Every structure is written in structure tokens, then in C-alpha cells.
Simulated scan of single mutants.
Amino acid sequence: MDLPKVGNTYAQERAGIAAVQGYAADRKQIWRETGTGDVGIDGQLEFVNEQALATGRTVAVQVKAGPSYFQHETAAGWKFYPEAKHRNYWEAFPLPVLLVLHNTETSLSYWTDARQALRTPTREERAYIEIPGTNVLQKSDPMTLFENAGVQDQPFIPDLHDVLKRLLATESREGTFPLSHFDLFVHGLTNICRSIYYGMDAVCNAVEYNLSVRKSEFGMGMGEPEHNFVFGFVKLLVAQNLAQIDYADCLIDWIDRQMQPHFVAPLTSRGRALVALIHEEERAIGRCRCSAR
């Protein structure tokens, strides 16, 4: 009897999808497979935090399964050669794109952020994306997968009064680098307090202002601890949902180019509420001073 034949490719593809779906189930993450219109994205993963809350932090996923994808081995992993149409599609995609290679013989999957790889400047144009052998999906912490989507290893602070306290309390302990995260926030406000600016010039201006106020005889000193301190401010903005920051782009500067990022980002509604709270606290201080007279 003549009947349609199901090729091996279909079984391999489904094994790859099942591996991602199984990972999501085991790690209590949300997996949404693309039901229609699959033109380069097989589905999406959404980050669920330790409190079992869906965060909205999402990455796209493209799965390639079968032995043929493991033929181009490197010292660190494997090369994957995407077609030009997929390179363009993934680079322009609005979410990080996890490229997952699934080995149907070992049932292990390996991943990298294809969008990040395509957006990161390199000395030579590469026709391939390298998937590290150390990025084993089944052994990966979910936070690692969602790093480029802005997932941070610090808890969300629900009360804005506590966020303000955190900004004020987070200070550099270096005498030649007097700076707090509060300084960076208020010095960076721009566009009639609708956006926040961040860059090394803003950092230097804030430090030099504080040195001037203190009448310090020393100039600004900045080493690795100070760089980590100010980049921690960027992480705080993302973790506390205060500004709409392209954190993946920040990581290209911070990790690959080893420099501070530079951006103007719109404040979220929460960020604008924090600005209003700061103004309210300023008015309260002003009233106290007037009554003291």
C-alpha cells in the first residue's frame, strides 16, 4: 500500500523541540511553541522567578537537531552556518534568540545567543556562529539563558521607598571616587525627567561635583572596583524595572569591548513614580527647614 513516509528529519526536529520543552518543564519555566508562521523562531521561553512569578522577560528559541549540525567542530564547540536570511532575521529580532543544537545521539543540547553573536563587532566578518560545548542546556541555570533579556541575580524591591533607600545607601567607599547610585540616578535624569542618561561623562561629572563640594585636594581615581560599582547601577535600573534599557546591547560594551555602556533610556512608569517620590521627599525636607526657622 502506498502511504506517506515520515522522514528522519521530522523525528529529529521533534526531539530537539521536546528537549527544550522538557528543560522548561523541569526548571519550571514557560515554553510557548510557535504554532503558525514559523519562519526562523521555533518558540519562546519566559523567565519564571523563584517566587513562581512570570516576569515577562522572554527569549526566542530556534532549535536545530541531528548529527549534521555537529560536523564543524572547534576547540570550544561547534560552528553553525546560518543562511543569510536567518542572519538578517535573528540580528533584527526584538528579543534575544537562543540557537539550540540538539544531539539526538547523546540527548544533550547546546546553546548560544545568536542575536548577540551577530550584533557583537568582530575584527573579521564570520560566516558562522560558534556554539560553546560548555553551554549544555540541560545543565544551565535559567538565569544564564535569560541574562541578555535583563534577568538579574538581585531581588526585586516592591516598595519604591525601599528602592530610594537602596539608591542612597549604595555608595563607593573609595575616597577619590565619592559617588552613590542615587547620584547617578538624579544626575542622569533628562528629557524633563522622562528619560535617564548614562555614560562615563555622567559618571565623571557626578564624581567631580562631589569632590568639589567636599573641597578634596585629590582628583578622581577609578579602577576596576569603581567600574564594577557604576555598572552595578545599570543592573539595578534593569532589576528594579526603572528604565527601558537594551541590556543585551549594554553587555556588548561591558563584556566584549570592556567599556562602560552609553545610552539614553525612557523611564518606565515605575521609574517616573520614583522621580515623583524624590520630588515629594525634597518638598518635605524644604517644609521642615522652613518650620525650623
Rank of each mutant, 00 (worst) to 15 (best):
R27L: 02
T58V: 06
G223H: 00
R194F: 14
A54W: 02
T36L: 10
E13H: 10
A265M: 06
P266M: 13
P96H: 12
V136M: 01
F263C: 04
V264G: 05
P155F: 11
N210Y: 08
T190R: 06
N205T: 07
Y23C: 05
L274W: 15
Q240D: 07
V234L: 09
M222T: 01
Y69P: 02
P67K: 03
R87F: 11
S180K: 01
E124N: 11
H279L: 06
F156W: 13
S269Q: 14
G22V: 09
L53G: 05
V203E: 00
N8H: 12
N8D: 13
H262G: 03
I252E: 13
Q62E: 13
Y69I: 05
F218K: 03
E147L: 14
D201A: 07
H187Q: 14
A92D: 12
C250R: 06
T104Q: 11
Y69S: 05
E224Q: 02
P96Q: 11
Y197T: 05
D2K: 15
L108H: 10
H187L: 08
F231T: 04
S180Q: 03
M200F: 10
F233Y: 12
E13V: 08
F231W: 08
I129R: 09
G40R: 09
P142D: 01
A52T: 07
H187Y: 14
L98D: 04
E50F: 12
R293M: 14
K85W: 13
A75M: 04
R173A: 01
K28Y: 05
V20M: 06
E50Q: 15
W78V: 09
V63R: 08
L95C: 01
T106P: 04
W111F: 06
H279W: 07
A117N: 14
S68E: 04
T268K: 08
Y110Q: 04
C204F: 03
L277N: 08
R87Q: 15
F233M: 05
E281N: 11
F182L: 14
H227S: 02
G35K: 07
P94Q: 01
I285T: 12
E280K: 08
Y198W: 09
N191I: 02
T9S: 09
P261G: 07
G188C: 07
S269W: 11
E50T: 13
L145H: 01
E130D: 12
S195M: 15
G223I: 00
L101A: 10
H102Q: 10
K5C: 06
C288G: 14
G221E: 00
G221L: 00
E282S: 11
E174W: 00
F229H: 00
R27A: 04
Q62A: 08
L184G: 09
Y198R: 06
D256T: 02
I196N: 06
A149L: 03
T120A: 10
M220Y: 00
V59N: 04
L236I: 03
P261Y: 07
G271N: 07
V275K: 08
G43Y: 02
L164Q: 15
A75W: 03
F218C: 01
F93P: 03
E171D: 02
R14G: 02
Q12Y: 13
L189D: 11
F93D: 10
A276R: 04
W78R: 13
F156D: 09
C288L: 14
R87H: 11
E224F: 00
A24C: 05
V63D: 05
A273P: 02
L184V: 04
E226Q: 00
L145V: 03
G35Y: 06
L236F: 13
F93C: 06
R57H: 13
L277W: 07
C288F: 11
A84Y: 11
R27P: 01
A75K: 04
A54Y: 03
